[in-house]
């Protein structure tokens, strides 16, 4: 159980970064994000994404517009705000630095 916990901790750290990055690439519905994140194994349970999206939106990094969909209620279409873009840049730098550091620290040579 401890291993699962640690893995979850690692994923937690990058989840917001990944969401912002995905949305910066392409605007999407929550369900589409879920699809991608599940494929990349970053998400175990779908419910996690909803509080995250709301938090990012409340912090001003994301926004959404309502899109009508055929045969269903209108859905939220999320996109990144300019503030979110700046935030994302910072996170990208941090991630790259982190990756270097970790690779360095864990290299067997």
């Amino acid at each position: 159980m401890n291993l699962e916990n640690t893995k979850a901790q690692m994923r937690k750290g990058v989840l917001e970064f990944c969401i912002l990055s995905l949305l910066a690439n392409k605007e999407a519905y929550a369900s589409e994000l879920i699809q991608t994140l599940k494929e990349s194994k970053l998400l175990v349970v779908e419910g996690t994404i909803y509080p995250l999206l709301t938090r990012l939106k409340n912090d001003g990094l994301l926004s959404y517009r309502w899109e009508e969909s055929t045969g269903g209620p209108p859905r939220k279409y999320y996109f990144v705000t300019p503030l979110g873009e700046k935030f994302l840049e910072e996170l990208r730098k941090t991630w790259n630095d982190l990756a270097e550091a970790v690779n360095f620290a864990t290299s067997s040579s």
């Binding site: 916990n5 979850a8 994923r11 937690k12 750290g13 989840l15 917001e16 998400l43 175990v44 349970v45 779908e46 419910g47 996690t48 509080p51 995250l52 938090r55």
Partner: peptide
């Protein structure tokens, strides 16, 4: 199961 129980969600949620 797909959406997750609250306990599972808070495990994954950063912050």
């Amino acid at each position: 199961r797909q959406l997750g129980e609250p306990a599972q969600i808070s495990q994954e949620e950063p912050g």
